[in-house]
Simulated assay, not measured.
Amino acid sequence: MPLDPYVVDLLAKARSLGRPPLRRLTPAEARAFVDADTAAKPRGPDLFAVEAVEVPGPAGPLRLRIYRPAAGVRPAVLYLHGGGFVFCDLDSHDGICRLLAARSGRTVVAVDYRLAPEHPFPAAADDGLAVLRLMAERADAFAIDPARIVVAGDSAGGNLAAVTALRARDEGGPPIEGQILAYPVTASYDAGFESYRIFAEGFGLTASDMVWFWDHYADARGRAHPHAAPFLATSLAGLPPAFVFTAEYDVLRDEGEAYARRLLEAGVLTRFERVRALHHGFLHLVDHPPAAAVFDAMADWLAGLER
């Protein structure tokens, strides 16, 4: 299917800004551009409550933002934002978390995990697992059902959600109800997936961007560890049900789809969807109907876990 005309226009506008590629930027310079872009992103719907809290983490306090669609105890989604492990934060993904909470009826807990290169692998993964355990242990304080926690994330956050599910399986829990992996990073840039060649340039996220991200996040030894590249896990058996979706025009498309196949082959109840005509990062387009429809799909999948 041809690239969505709305996305074509967005990509043209981005090119017109004349920004240098990531490989020519420092992390601080890249974050400044991301911060500027965040101010222009759609805000998402109003909710019953949005709360900022601070909790203890593995290496100091962690900021969380809790999105409550309604009063009372709710099932929950632990959300880990994308950004290549190097940038983005609670603000950059505020619209995504708002719409996910509104459409699903679940309380969404977003994590401001530590970023690379200041905090390389496995810092972000450690933070994700720590917050999952805290949510389960202090469910009353979060006003959530500890038996109904789903882990979710987009791009690098999809990686962290998958890794959190793996580590919870292997490191004593807590149990997870499900996992949502949105166009996830599941393997290193040198894994040989064809989409790296097909969509190397011209569709937003580039192949060279992924090299830049990985080089800041993990060294060669780290990139070979399944807690950095979950596709390398020896077995995916025993993981919670998964909803994996990819974007048709995305360097990460093939590795996300390969991970979904491995989940299915391991006997994990898995729903997979390739979202046609859209590119990497489309969840941020919360006001664009084809992207917003994916939030409905996530809500339907989450509702199915409850039946």
Results as ranks from 00 to 15, higher is better:
211 V>N: 01
213 F>S: 04
19 R>M: 02
221 R>Q: 15
58 P>D: 12
305 L>F: 09
110 A>P: 12
222 G>L: 10
68 R>G: 04
292 A>M: 08
147 A>R: 12
301 W>N: 06
246 T>L: 01
263 L>N: 02
235 S>T: 15
295 F>K: 07
55 V>C: 06
38 T>N: 10
1 M>Q: 08
279 H>R: 08
111 V>T: 02
231 F>L: 15
275 V>S: 01
42 P>M: 10
51 E>K: 01
17 L>M: 15
211 V>R: 13
32 A>M: 04
79 Y>P: 03
178 G>W: 05
30 A>K: 00
227 H>G: 06
214 W>S: 00
189 Y>M: 07
216 H>F: 06
229 A>I: 05
199 F>Y: 15
277 A>P: 01
172 G>C: 00
115 L>A: 11
219 D>K: 12
79 Y>R: 01
149 I>G: 07
78 L>F: 13
115 L>D: 12
139 A>D: 11
241 P>H: 03
81 H>I: 05
93 H>M: 03
250 D>M: 07
85 F>L: 07
50 V>F: 02
59 A>Q: 15
53 V>S: 11
239 L>G: 10
246 T>Q: 00
11 L>A: 06
257 E>I: 04
224 A>H: 11
143 A>E: 15
116 A>Y: 05
27 P>K: 03
120 P>Q: 12
179 Q>F: 12
200 A>I: 02
